[in-house]
Nucleic acid binder design. Structure first.
Lengths: 344, 344
DNA sequence: TCTGGCACTCGTGTGCGCAGAGTGCCAGGG
DNA sequence: CCCTGGCACTCTGCGCACACGAGTGCCAGA
C-alpha cells in the first residue's frame, strides 16, 4: 500500500517536472495530451489529468481559465527547484569560453564589467554583479598626500583592488614629517587587517602624537573611518536589460516595474543581500521582497577570492526560466570570478 | 506680392508648429479640424488642409495612411527645432530644485550619479552623463607608493576629482629615497598640466637620475603614460530606462534596439562625441549614426568646470519629444553641474 | 487503479458591417 | 488670387456573431 502511494506521488512529481519543462520551453499552458506526447510517462492523458487535478488542488499548478492548459505556480517552481531539478553543469567548451573571456580583464572594474556581460549573455537574462564589498576585504595600503598646507588627500587601497579617496580639510597646517609619521603608523597597524577591524586598531593613535598634532590626526582618522564605514559605496553593475524584451506579451506592465527596480541600487543590493552567503539562493516570484519583482525570479550566489565570499552576483529573469541552466551558469561564473580575484 | 508669399509661408510654419505641438501632446496623428479648434489660426480647416498638403509635398509631415491625420517627419522636427522653437527656460522653483539636489553630492561619482538621475526625472526620458574626461582635465597630484620591494602603486589624481590607479612591477628593488625623488620631480613638472601634455614634459626625466635607477624610472613613466592615454576609461552613467516603457504601442520592436544601444558604452560615447563641444546638439531620428536609435532623438551638450567643456551629457527620447522643454532641462542641468565642478 | 469515451466550457480567430475621422477636390465668394 | 464651405471617398477601429479547437471533468468499465 505504502509502496503504491509513493508510486503515485512519484508520478505526480514527474508530471510536475514535465509541466515545468514544457512550459519553460514553449511559454504556453501545457495540456495533458501534449504532455504524454512529449514525455514517455507510460500512462494515458486521462491519468495525467487526474494527477493534474491533484497538483492543482495542492497549489502547484493553475489554469488561467477553464479549458486551458496548466501553468506552474510559484509554489510549483519552488518544488521543482528544491526536489526535481539538478543544477546543470556547464559544458567543457562553455567553461573554456568563460575562462577565456574573464582572463582578459585588466583591473577590478574590468573584471566586474566582463562578468556581468558574460552572465547576461550566458543566461540571456538580466545579470547583476556586486563589487567586492569593502567590509569583507582587507587594507592593502593607506596613502596620505598633502595637496595644500591644510588639505590632505586620503587614499584607501584594498586587497580586492578597490580604491577609495577622500579629501580631508585639516584644522591647521600639516607638516610633511607629521604626515609621513602618521602614514607610517597607520599602515603599520592597519595593513592586512579587515576593514571593520581598522577603527579599533587605530583608536589610540592620536595619543601617540604631540599634543599639537592631535587635532589633525583625529580629523584624518575620522575621515578614514567614514570611508571605511560607508555602506553606500556598495556598488553594483548590471547588464542584459535588453533581454527583458523577451519577457512576455503583456509587455509594458511586466517590464516597467522591473526596469524601475533595476535602477534602484538599494533594491538590488537588498535583493543580493538576502543571499545566504556562499550557498546559491533562488527567490521565486512573490518570494521577492520587492513587489516590482513579483513576477520574476532571482538566482544569486556569493563569490570571493579564496575560500570566503566577498560579494554576490546573480541573475534576474521571468519565473518561467530555465532554472537548472541558469543555476549552472551562475555557479560557474561565480567560481571563475573567485579564481580571477584570488590570482590578482 | 513678396509680402503675400511670406505671409503664406509664415502660416505654413505656424501650421507645422501647431502639428508638432499637438502631436507631441496627444501622440496621435493630428487632423485639420482638431488643429483649428486648438490653435487660433484664424483660417478654416480647408485652408489648413491645403497647407498641410504643401507641407507634405515638401516632406515635413506625412500621413500613416489615407484619411488619417498628419505626423511630423524627422525633417519636420528639424525645422521645428531650428526655426520654430525657443528653448524653454526652467522655472525658478525648478532651478532651485536642481541646485538643491546637486548640492548634496559628496564626490565625483556622486555628482555624476545625481546628475543623471535628476536629468532622467526632469525630462522623463533616458539620461546619459559622461564622466569628466581625462584628456581635458589637468593633473592635481601623482602619488607613488611602495607596496613591496619591487612593486609600486601609482595614483593619478585629476582636478575633476577623478582617481586612476595602476600597479607597477619594477625591474629591481626601489629605494625609498629614489621613489621620493621621483615623486617630487614628477609632481613639480606635471602638476597643473593638462593630461595630454604630461608625457612631453616628463620625457627627459630618466636622464636626470643615476644610471642605475633609470630602468625603474622609465617603467614607472611608461605606466603613467598608459594611464594618461587610456581612452577606454571614458565612463558613462545612465538612468531612466524605465521611462522607455512610455515609448509607444509597437513596443518590443521600439524598445529592444534602444536598450541594446544603451548597454554599449561605445555607442553612447560616440553619440555624445558627436556633440560639437559647448553648443547644444539635437540629433533627430535618422540623423543618429547608430541605427538602433533611428526612431529616437538625442539632445546633448557639453559641460565643464569653468569656461571650457570637459565632458558631455544628454537625453535620449522618442523623436516625438518636447524639444523646448528637454533642451531647457539639459541646458540648465549642464550649467549647474559645471558650477558644482568648478567649486569643488 | 488506470483507461477510453463523452459532453461541456471557454478563449481565439474570422468575417461582416458600421461609425467616425480625415482627406482631396471643386465651385463660389471676397 | 486666395480662402471657404460642401461633398464624396477612403481608410481604420470596433463590436458582434459564429464556428473551431483545445482542454477539461467525470463516469463506467477493465
Amino acid at each position: 500500500m505504502a509502496g503504491e502511494v509513493r508510486q503515485l506521488d512519484d508520478r505526480k512529481l514527474a508530471v510536475l517536472r514535465a509541466i515545468v519543462q514544457d512550459y519553460v520551453g514553449t511559454e504556453e499552458p501545457v495540456g495533458s495530451k501534449a504532455l504524454v506526447d512529449r514525455h514517455n510517462l507510460g500512462v494515458s492523458p486521462a491519468t495525467v489529468r487526474n494527477d493534474m487535478a491533484a497538483l492543482e488542488e495542492e497549489g502547484y499548478i493553475h489554469q488561467p481559465h477553464t479549458s486551458a492548459g496548466r501553468i506552474p505556480t510559484d509554489k510549483g517552481y519552488r518544488l521543482f527547484v528544491d526536489k526535481l531539478a539538478e543544477v546543470k553543469p556547464m559544458s567543457a567548451p562553455e567553461r573554456r569560453a568563460i575562462r577565456h573571456f574573464l582572463d582578459g580583464a585588466v583591473d577590478l572594474d574590468d573584471v566586474v564589467a566582463r562578468t556581468v556581460r558574460l552572465l547576461a549573455q550566458l543566461t540571456r537574462q538580466v545579470a547583476v554583479v556586486q563589487y567586492p564589498s569593502l567590509t569583507r576585504s582587507t587594507v592593502r595600503h593607506i596613502e596620505l598626500v598633502a595637496l595644500a598646507p591644510a588639505k590632505v588627500m586620503l587614499v584607501l587601497i584594498t586587497n580586492t583592488g578597490r580604491v577609495e579617496q577622500r579629501m580631508v580639510d585639516c584644522p591647521g597646517t600639516v607638516g610633511e614629517t607629521v604626515l609621513a609619521d602618521l602614514r607610517a603608523r597607520i599602515n603599520a597597524r592597519a595593513a592586512g587587517q579587515r576593514l571593520p577591524d581598522v577603527p579599533g586598531l587605530l583608536e589610540e593613535l592620536p595619543a601617540t602624537f604631540e599634543q599639537i598634532d592631535r587635532p589633525t590626526v583625529s580629523t584624518v582618522l575620522v575621515t578614514l573611518f567614514e570611508a571605511l564605514a560607508e555602506q553606500s559605496e556598495e556598488r553594483i553593475m548590471l547588464a542584459g536589460t535588453a533581454n527583458l524584451t523577451r519577457l512576455g506579451h503583456d509587455f509594458p506592465l511586466t517590464i516597467q516595474p522591473v526596469l524601475e527596480a533595476l535602477e534602484e541600487q538599494v533594491v538590488l543590493l537588498r535583493l543580493l543581500g538576502e543571499t545566504t552567503d556562499a550557498a546559491m539562493t533562488v527567490r521565486i516570484g512573490r518570494e521577492n521582497a520587492y513587489e516590482g519583482l513579483n513576477s520574476t525570479s532571482v538566482v544569486s550566489v556569493g563569490y570571493g577570492s579564496g575560500d570566503e565570499s566577498v560579494a554576490k552576483l546573480g541573475v534576474i529573469g521571468p519565473t518561467r526560466m530555465d532554472y537548472p541552466g541558469t543555476m549552472g551558469a551562475v555557479r560557474a561564473v561565480a567560481r571563475y570570478v573567485g579564481q580571477i580575484l584570488a590570482e590578482s
